[in-house]
Design a protein around this nucleic acid. Structure first.
Length: 739
DNA sequence: TCGGGCTCCGGGTGG
DNA sequence: CGGAGCCCGA
């Protein structure tokens, strides 16, 4: 009888009983490298959280010894919440969060060694592009030939492989390679001057830090006795190396993942990390979680019948105790509008057959652009919905503008934010002046804000403009001082007020500007909420960091009574009783560019697998024979994934004929070249309506037409209803009766 | 310097 | 189709 086993059984807390045998084995194997291959819906979050709780409960670790990493804030939040339930009051000091947020935290502490100050800014893609544009301009290169987008892509690739500018230079084979290396070098220099890191830097700068300062590496290697990694199949090379460094001392690294759900190859994820874990750690213990607790038998079988066609995978098949359930429903329709309509019809039917909540439904698509028609169809039937992703809140112009002010206050070196707002609202300070200021700052080794304060000494700037600059400089100084006294929310509110952003938007008075004003107001609320949640001590810097690492997805709550619309990528990790996947067409899903690239095609297939396994009870797959893209129509062919589906698990409902019947007019099959006949009809219909006309809607009741936008298929009408208020309706669906 | 209007081009997923 | 960038007139 070994000492160890008797101890373990004595200490085994009751909660291991909540787990199946594989889960429980994976939880209690705390020492050494552990690979947990966890299929969709097999309880992987459960294993991770119980593992943490187990470490704490058995006294194997304190909270501060644990480092737990996820990819999304949502997953991190969920993990934190669930651990808190299992081990209340024992979480203080635990490093639990996304890769990016944890390493941002580390770099705030240690970044000075690499020349960053602790308030460094975190640049998103658009900030990155702004920096690259400047670099391209400085190098006098053509923006067309060397597009910032292409450059950012190549630089990001280089960073993910941990290649430095000099490496690119040495490996260069073409003149373009040389230029990329040069741009990369200048880009990094510039970021350092701006005291800013991009998302890739958050991962590679810690590696640089650990390599240059072995004592720092040792400190963290020592500190983190236990590492836990979620979604390991999505790690890129930099993350892989980071984990390798951090695990080097204690070697207690547990990774959870599913090679079938690797869907981020395009941004550097390397599926070999999980496929080769056993080679990296030959002594690792491996566990398979193959019991699915989420979906019906047919949904699982259908999803598996597609993904099994991939060559790059560990062969495996999930099983379930659940009944087979209903067939996967395949719906073929005539065009994208009909697709949207049939999705909404089916959804409403399921809702009525219920008892259902709208939150039980999700509509998933390959590209954000597809959300539009679905959204309009839902709106026309007054079904509440929630769009995740798309144009993200924090990427809206008006929101970024306000944030740019705050970012400049937080980091006076942030010349990118400065550029954004120095002339917003208009102060007569244009491109030429900005360049002079930046030039001056660089010459005198000043931050842009310091340069601003000394602008009166720059002779090349006209006196009139110097006055404008000085007024702006005073504004920034004033708020820099106020930053010490006010909470972030008070500061932001005062600023928005003084600068006149709200006033200007109000004056504009268009629907669009009202909308933008509401976004600004919402931002102010969000800042206040952040302060409330994080206490009086939370600073502007904390808020800004949180913002740059947050996406819309993270605010998704599962309690909302609304249909969720989102991309297949966003859906990872979520589940819904009823799921629609729309646009199952060659060229769209799989996307055209992947069709000739086998690894990319396999990734599309995995993406389908991820989407299908989100469904608990019922899965609908739809495709359309005709789809409008970029204003033009194109005929399409059903996705190869439809053909790969095991026919035992599906049944087909073609709605081509019922659509015709519904419309009471034929749709020609040769609509490819000609404009769609029904669109032409709609614009004629719109001519019947006039502004000011009284109309009746079957749901909203009586109202008056305020505005008609007769742009073909998207013809919209704005009606002020007597009781339901203003509503934007899509004319073809509006079913308005003229009174 | 600014803003309107035009053209041109992208087209995909996100921390 | 829609957004970004560019050109031109004020």
């Amino acid at each position: 009888m070994s000492n160890r086993s008797s101890k373990a059984s004595a200490k085994t807390p009751g909660f291991l009983e909540d787990l199946n045998s594989q889960q429980s084995a994976a939880v209690s194997q705390t020492e050494g490298p552990v690979l947990i291959l966890a299929g969709a819906g097999s309880g992987k979050t459960r294993v991770l959280t119980y593992r943490i709780a187990y470490l704490l409960a058995n006294g194997l670790a304190d909270a501060s010894d644990i480092l737990a990493m996820t990819f999304t804030n949502k997953a991190a939040g969920e993990m934190r919440e669930r651990v808190a339930k299992l081990a209340p009051d024992r979480m203080a000091g635990m490093w639990i969060g996304t890769f990016h947020s944890l390493f941002a935290r580390l770099m705030r502490r240690e970044g000075e060694r690499l020349g960053y100050s602790s308030n460094f800014a975190i640049y998103d893609e658009s900030d990155q592009l702004a920096v690259l544009k400047q670099v391209v301009t400085d190098l006098k290169l053509s923006m067309q030939e060397f597009s910032p987008k292409m450059l950012s892509y190549r630089i990001s690739n280089a960073k993910n492989r941990l290649a430095l500018p000099n490496d690119l230079h040495e490996q260069a084979e073409t003149p373009l390679d040389e230029i990329v290396a040069r741009v990369y070098q200048l880009y990094q220099n510039r970021l350092l001057e701006l005291n800013a890191m991009d998302f890739d830097d958050l991962l590679i700068k810690p590696i640089e830090l650990f390599e240059r300062f072995p004592l720092v590496a040792e400190y963290y290697q020592d500190k983190f006795h236990y590492l836990l990694v979620d979604e390991y199949q999505d790690t890129n090379h930099a993350q892989y190396i980071l984990l390798k460094i951090l695990a080097a001392k204690h070697r207690n690294i547990a990774v959870v993942g599913d090679d079938d759900q690797s869907i981020y190859r395009w941004r550097g994820a390397d599926i070999r990390n999980i496929l080769d874990f056993e080679k990296d750690y030959p002594d690792c213990k491996k566990y398979h979680l193959e019991q699915n607790y989420r979906s019906t038998g047919k949904i699982l079988a259908a999803a598996h019948s597609v993904v099994k066609n991939n060559r790059q995978r560990h062969p495996k098949e999930l099983w379930t105790n659940k009944p087979d359930g209903e067939d996967v429903c395949l719906l073929e329709v005539e065009n994208d509008l009909a697709e949207a309509r049939i999705v909404v019809n089916k959804l409403i039917r399921e809702f009525k057959q219920g008892p259902r909540n709208f939150g039980d439904f999700a509509v998933l698509y390959r590209t954000n652009a597809q959300s539009r028609v679905i959204e309009e169809a839902l709106r026309s039937e007054s079904v509440p919905y929630l769009i995740v992703g798309g144009v993200k809140f924090y990427e809206r112009k008006e929101v970024k503008d306000v944030l740019a002010y705050l970012r400049l206050l937080s980091n006076p070196a942030d010349a990118i934010s400065f550029r954004r707002i120095v002339n917003y609202p208009a102060r007569g300070i244009g491109e030429a002046t900005i360049n002079k200021l930046e030039e001056f700052a660089r010459q005198h080794h000043l931050t842009i804000v310091e340069a601003l304060n000394r602008a009166s000494t720059i002779d090349s700037i006209q006196p009139r403009i110097r006055e404008e600059i000085s007024a702006f400089a005073q504004l920034i100084s004033k708020y820099t001082l106020l930053k010490q006294e006010l909470s972030p929310a008070e500061l932001a509110a005062a600023l928005v007020d003084e600068v006149g952003i709200a006033r200007d938007l109000k004056q504009e008075g268009t629907l669009d500007s009202i909308n933008r004003m509401e976004n600004v107001r919402e931002l102010l609320l969000a800042i206040a909420e952040f302060s409330a949640k994080n206490g009086r001590t939370s600073t502007l810097d904390d808020y800004l960091q949180q913002v740059s690492l947050t996406t819309d997805l993270d605010s998704l709550t599962d309690r909302t009574n609304a249909v969720t619309l989102m991309t297949l990528h966003s859906a990872k990790g979520l589940e819904f009783p009823i799921v629609f996947i729309v646009g199952m067409e060659e060229g769209l899903f799989p996307l055209s560019r992947s069709i000739t690239d086998p690894p990319a095609l396999e990734e599309e297939r995995r993406l389908f697998y991820v989407g299908a396994t989100r469904a608990k009870e019922k899965l609908y797959l739809t495709w359309s024979r005709f789809r409008r893209r970029f204003g033009d129509g194109m005929q399409s062919v059903p996705s190869r994934f439809i053909k790969e589906l095991d026919p035992e698990t599906t049944h087909l409902e073609s709605s081509l004929h019922s659509v015709r019947a519904e419309r009471r007019r034929p749709i020609s099959d040769d609509a490819f070249d000609a404009p769609m006949p029904d669109y032409a009809d709609q614009s004629q219909e719109s001519n019947e309506y006039r502004i000011g006309m009284r109309v009746m809607h079957e749901i909203f009741g009586k109202g008056t037409i305020l505005k008609i936008d007769p742009s073909g298929a998207q013809a919209k009408i704005l009606v002020l209803f007597d009781t339901a208020g203003k509503r934007r309706l899509i004319l073809p669906y509006a079913k308005l009766e003229i009174l």
